[in-house]
């Protein structure tokens, strides 16, 4: 699944460690999400959407790989 996580994080000038801390996940998880190696669960997707104040579909696109 394609996502805009890396772009959104870069816009806010957050490191992966900062985003990981805000989402209460490991930095490895943030990296795996950004590289498309792992798709988040629905609760984590909602958490990410709330953090960036966006809709889930504004961040994640089920249309294709990264």
């Amino acid at each position: 699944m394609k996502n805009r996580l890396r772009v959104l994080r870069a816009e806010r000038e957050w490191s992966q460690a900062v985003l990981a801390e805000r989402l209460d996940v490991s930095r490895q998880t943030v990296n795996a999400l950004e590289t498309g190696k792992y798709d988040p669960s629905l609760p984590l997707a909602f958490k990410i959407a709330r953090l960036f104040e966006l809709q889930i579909e504004d961040i994640f696109d089920p249309g294709g790989a990264v």
Binding site: D24, V25, S26, Q28, T29, A32, Y38, P40, S41, L44
Partner: peptide, 8 residues
Amino acid sequence: GTDELQRL
């Protein structure tokens, strides 16, 4: 207690 990727 760990996150979902670590659980996987």
